[in-house]
């Protein structure tokens, strides 16, 4: 089973680059690429919104709920939150009640910020995992964009929280080393160019069980991002783990 743990919905800002696409195409294209299940979030209906209002968050999550309803066998939903909004908890509960399995955090708040702590606690109470964007940019991150060191601090603060740090390639070796001591932090392979060595580094630093396949489609291609794993110089059994079974175990852990 191939599971892509990092997918977004098409939004209006994609039109210029990717053409006007049917809402459902993100699922049908995954199917065509041989992917069995996708874990999807929306970062906004009009564009990727870094500090979405409560209304914008609800719209984004409604889009994911719609896909979950239409493709119940293929789509897992993540609840996008802006922890700065006063009603984040109500939105988390609404998404949880409708079957979402995790929380998506982008760049509204750094992962190490205490603003985030109540969100993590509420997520843990509901057995929801956290997918946290992170990047280690050589010319500096956005104001509230997490670096891997922020994610590592969050992992120390909440060792029982299950966290997926997004973008193995965007965090570099240094970033992967920062989260290596925390067994509750996984990394997904999403985004970035298909540069040689990224997956090999992730496996060497984190081991074969904490690396999860993610594409970051539609901004990235399902096929290219899969090839990062299939072409990597790692054993076939490890590739299979990354492509799906690691996430299945991760989810089972949630259930327990």
């Amino acid at each position: 089973m191939i599971i892509d743990v990092h997918v977004h919905t098409y939004n209006r800002s994609h039109d210029a680059l990717l053409g006007s696409r049917l809402f459902q195409e993100i699922v049908t294209r995954a199917r065509k690429a041989g992917i069995d299940r996708i874990v999807i979030s929306s970062l906004g209906r009009t564009a990727y919104l870094p500090y979405p209002s409560s209304q914008e968050v609800r719209e984004a999550n409604d889009d994911v709920l719609k896909l979950m309803q239409e493709f119940p066998e293929e789509v897992y939903g993540l609840c996008y939150l802006n922890p700065r909004n006063p009603d984040w908890k109500e939105e988390m509960q609404r998404c949880y009640d409708r079957g979402m399995i995790g929380i998506k955090l982008w760049i509204a708040v750094k992962a190490s910020s205490p603003i985030l702590f109540p969100v993590i606690e509420a997520a843990m109470q509901r057995n929801l995992f956290i997918q946290q964007h992170s990047f280690l940019k050589s010319r500096g991150n956005y104001r509230d964009e997490s670096e891997p060191f922020d994610v590592a601090r969050l992992g120390i603060e909440y060792p029982q929280a299950r966290i997926i740090m997004a973008h193995a390639g965007g965090n570099g070796r240094e970033g992967l080393k920062a989260i290596a001591p925390m067994p509750n932090i996984y990394v997904d392979t999403s985004g970035g160019v298909p540069e040689c060595g990224v997956i090999e580094n992730a496996v060497a630093i984190l081991g074969s069980q904490r690396v999860l396949f993610g594409s970051d489609a539609p901004g990235r291609s399902y096929a290219v991002q899969q090839a990062k794993i299939t072409a990597a110089s790692i054993p076939a059994a490890v590739k299979r783990r990354i492509m799906g079974s690691n996430f299945q175990e991760f989810i089972r852990h949630e259930d327990n």
Partner: peptide
């Protein structure tokens, strides 16, 4: 790279403008 990107580019600007390149060995072939 992007889901639908090449289709969109070819639709708009024609197939004659695109050449295949891998950027190997930076990228996997």
């Amino acid at each position: 790279e992007g889901e639908g990107l090449l289709e969109e580019i070819i639709d708009k600007y024609g197939v004659q403008k695109i050449l295949y390149g891998s950027n190997y060995p930076f990228f996997y072939m």
